[in-house]
Design a protein around this nucleic acid. Structure first.
Length: 416
RNA sequence: GGAGGGAUGGCCGAGCGGACGAAGGCGAUAGUCUUGAAAACUAUUGUAUGUAUUCCAUACCGUGGGUUCGAAUCCCACUCCCUCCGCCA
């Protein structure tokens, strides 16, 4: 959520932002709603103040004047109640719209409407020349390492069974990533994957992306699509000592996504599934330093991919392709031989104060409090890393062979 | 799942219808004293919003409603914590 003060102080930035996001919002109406609620509140508070004074008089009044005052106070009470009801309505009218206003886009993010306008800022790694590259499913299925058919019988489409060495690789990857991150000051964390709706509102997934989230209606809980949600909410309603920042977490969790509206997209294998495991980085940091922190998180992502010898490129995500909470986002896309293109394997966002304001996360230094910045980034999205590892290291006879240094990380030299 | 007890400021803890944004203590910060430190003493010590900008007003005593002229205090619902019983990876 943005600071509503922007309506008064810097409406031009807001206008520009909505334009870049290709959104049409009536700012005049919003400003009017904001002014109305302020006005009403001012009036209501004034009256409330009078009511309190009157109430105090009653306490010390003699019997005679007391009845008179009580009469007066009774009427006053009615009025105050009515006025505050109006204030509540005005607040709600404003907030219903305001909560949907997305974060301010960084001036450094490229313009554009869709991912086609994302700008490539770096390429790394050598793309091996593979004759007739097979896709990961074909390879893994034939080696008995993945079964999506049986999974779709049991659970539906976009689920999978992983077997044998792929399981071993997953656990090794996760443990390795945790170790790397821990060395860099990220506290290893296993957060809850079921959360209340508050955490989803706070992180900006609700109300806009609610259709992507699995719901447990009996218990009013939701399955998270990323550990970003419980990690961000970890410090909600807290005031952190600025001297302790940045506070970094490395969260491991299974992630659940409904993938509504993606029918027909990426239907092969485990690229886009309803359930996958992920190690996620999350940072609470000083607003002054969030750009720096963002670059740091990106550099960690690159480091991990480089160690795994996966060719990739980094893209600066354009305005129209940013989620509502992100101010700036870098995606890393790994080379996928079967598709002869780069596909997203990690993503890191600077959400500036957007989530922190909603979650009420503040910092305090020298008696001053301010809303913090939060950032998140993928360390290892297991499924997609497995795909990149399998496809980029496939051999001509449909097997997989890893380099010694990669094998050392993942604990497996060959898939055959 | 059943039966009880509880939730107050950074922490402990009093208050149980009016002078309470909240006693007292601890902690923290500043000052006095001291060669320095400790101790002692003194003062300060939450957050947010506003048509207020070192003043003032309003809100916040787990959350949301209600009763009342007036609620930390009474009533209802919810959430969380603790104890006991049952069940359980």
């Amino acid at each position: 959520m943005l600071d509503p003060a922007i309506l008064k102080n810097d409406i031009e930035s807001l206008e520009l932002n909505l334009e870049r996001r290709n959104l049409d919002v009536d700012l005049k109406e919003l400003t009017a709603l904001d002014e109305l609620r302020r006005e009403l509140r001012f009036e209501a508070e004034k009256l409330r103040s009078e009511q309190k004074t009157l109430g105090k008089q009653i306490a010390s009044a003699d019997e005679k004047t007391k009845n008179e005052l009580l009469d007066q106070a009774s009427q006053m009470s009615e009025k105050v109640k009515e006025l505050f009801e109006k204030v509540d309505v005005a607040d709600k009218n404003f907030m219903d719209i305001w909560i949907k206003i997305p974060n301010l886009i960084s001036t450094t993010s490229p313009d554009g409407i869709s991912d086609k306008e994302n700008s490539e800022i770096k390429k790394f790694g050598e793309i091996r020349n593979i004759n007739n590259p097979k896709d990961h499913l074909e390879i893994a299925e034939s080696l008995g390492l993945i079964d999506v058919q049986k999974a779709s019988e049991v659970s539906g489409s976009r689920f999978s069974y992983l077997f044998g060495d792929l399981v071993k690789i997953e656990f090794n990857l996760v443990l390795w990533a945790m170790q790397q991150l821990s060395d860099k000051g990220f506290k290893p964390t296993i957060p809850p994957v079921l959360v209340r709706e508050n955490a989803l509102y706070g992180t900006g997934f609700f109300p806009d992306d609610a259709e992507q989230v699995y719901e447990i209606p009996n218990d009013d809980l939701y399955l998270v699509g990323t550990s970003e949600v419980p990690l961000a909410a970890l410090h909600s309603n807290e005031i952190l000592d600025t001297a302790t920042l940045p506070i970094r977490y490395a969260g491991f969790s299974t992630c659940f996504r409904r993938e509504a509206g993606t029918y027909g997209k990426d239907t092969t294998g485990i690229f886009r599934v309803h359930q996958f495991d992920k190690v996620e980085m999350f940072s609470f940091c000083d607003p002054e330093k969030s750009e720096e922190e963002h670059k740091f998180i990106l550099s960690v992502e690159e480091e991990l991919l480089q160690a795994l010898e996966i060719p990739y490129r980094v893209v600066d995500v354009c305005a129209g392709d940013l989620g509502s909470s992100a101010s700036k986002k870098y995606d890393i896309e790994a080379w996928i031989p079967s598709q002869q293109t780069y596909r997203e394997v990690t993503s890191c966002s600077n959400t500036t104060d957007f989530q922190a304001r909603r979650l009420n996360i503040r910092g305090k230094a020298d008696g001053e409090t301010n809303v913090l910045h939060t950032l998140n980034g993928t360390a290892i999205a297991v499924g997609r890393i497995l795909i990149a590892l399998i496809e980029n290291n496939q051999t001509e006879d449909g097997k997989v062979e890893f380099s010694d240094s990669v094998a050392e990380i993942i604990g497996v030299k060959n898939l055959s």
